[in-house]
C-alpha cells in the first residue's frame, strides 16, 4: 500500500513541472478586430483592423489567417482576389465555386481565407476585402437583406500552444498550398462590431402591371411605326 502511494506521488512529482511548464509557456492571445464597411450599393469594401495587445514574441513562428464564410447573397470575385494576390495587397484564396453572375437564390456559398503572415506579426494589421452583392428576386416592396458573417480568426503555431480551449478547424496551410488542409485553432477575439445586415435594392413587383404593359406595347408600337415608314416609302414612289 505504501509502495503504491509512493509510486503515485512519484508520478505526480514527475508530471508536476510539465503541467506548470505548459501553463506558463502557452501563448496568450488578446486580439481585437474592428470592422468597417466602405461604399454603398453592390460593390463594397470590408475593412478590418486586427490588433493584438501584449504580443508574445513567440508568436513570430505562428501563422494567422482570417476565415470568412460568404453566404448566398454576396460573393468575392476570384479574379479580383487573384489580382490582389498578384499585386501583394491581400494574400487570400477562395474555397468553393463562385458564379459571379448567379442571382442570390441560385448561388452557392463559398469561403475566403486571408493569410496574414505576409504582413508579419499580429501587432496591428489593416485589411481590405472587396465584396459584391448579388441581385435578388423581386419583392412586393422593400429591400433585400444579406447577412454578413463575422470572420473567424485562425492561428496555428507549430512549436507552441495557445492558451484557452478554442475549437479546432481545418483550413489550407497557405495560399500557395490551397489543397492541403491542416488543423488550425479558431481563436475567440473581441469584436468591436455586430453582425451586419446589408440592404440590397430589389425590383418592386408592384410596378409589374404597368411595366409589363408599357414595355410590350412600346416594343410592338416601335415595330409598327418602322413598318409604316417603309410601306409609306413605297406608296410615295407609286404616286410619283
Amino acid at each position: 500500500m505504501y509502495h503504491l502511494f509512493a509510486f503515485c506521488l512519484n508520478i505526480f512529482a514527475f508530471f508536476l513541472p510539465l503541467i506548470n511548464c505548459s501553463e506558463k509557456d502557452c501563448i496568450n492571445l488578446d486580439v481585437t478586430i474592428t470592422q468597417k464597411i466602405e461604399n454603398l450599393g453592390f460593390h463594397r469594401d470590408l475593412n478590418w483592423l486586427v490588433e493584438t495587445q501584449n504580443l508574445d514574441p513567440k508568436t513570430s513562428a505562428c501563422s494567422v489567417a482570417l476565415k470568412l464564410n460568404i453566404g448566398q447573397g454576396m460573393f468575392v470575385n476570384p479574379d479580383q482576389v487573384d489580382d490582389l494576390r498578384r499585386l501583394k495587397k491581400l494574400d487570400a484564396i477562395i474555397d468553393g465555386i463562385v458564379d459571379i453572375e448567379a442571382p442570390a437564390h441560385e448561388a452557392t456559398k463559398h469561403t475566403v481565407y486571408i493569410f496574414l503572415n505576409g504582413t508579419q506579426l499580429l501587432d496591428k494589421i489593416a485589411l481590405k476585402l472587396p465584396i459584391h452583392l448579388r441581385y435578388q428576386r423581386s419583392l412586393i416592396g422593400g429591400h433585400g437583406k444579406v447577412i454578413l458573417n463575422k470572420p473567424w480568426l485562425l492561428v496555428r503555431c507549430p512549436n507552441s500552444i495557445i492558451c484557452g480551449k478554442d475549437r479546432k478547424v481545418s483550413a489550407p496551410i497557405s495560399s500557395k498550398e490551397a489543397e492541403s488542409f491542416v488543423v488550425w485553432k479558431n481563436i475567440s477575439y473581441k469584436a468591436q462590431f455586430d453582425e451586419m445586415e446589408l440592404l440590397v435594392p430589389v425590383g418592386n413587383l408592384n410596378d409589374y402591371a404597368y411595366v409589363a404593359i408599357i414595355t410590350c406595347i412600346l416594343g410592338c408600337a416601335g415595330c409598327v411605326y418602322i413598318l409604316s415608314l417603309t410601306t409609306a416609302e413605297d406608296n410615295e414612289d407609286n404616286k410619283k
Binding site: P103, H105, E106, Y135, R137, S138, G203, L205, D207, Y208, A209, V211, A212, I213, T215, C216, G219, C220, G222, C223
Partner: peptide, 29 residues
Amino acid sequence: YLQYLVAFIKLSVWYTGNLWQPILINLPP
C-alpha cells in the same frame, strides 16, 4: 426591368402571363 421582375418568379396574370410575354418581346424584331 420586365425581365428582372419576372425572373425566377411564376406569375400568371392575364395581361402578359408567361405565354404572351416572350411572344410580344421576340416578335417585333
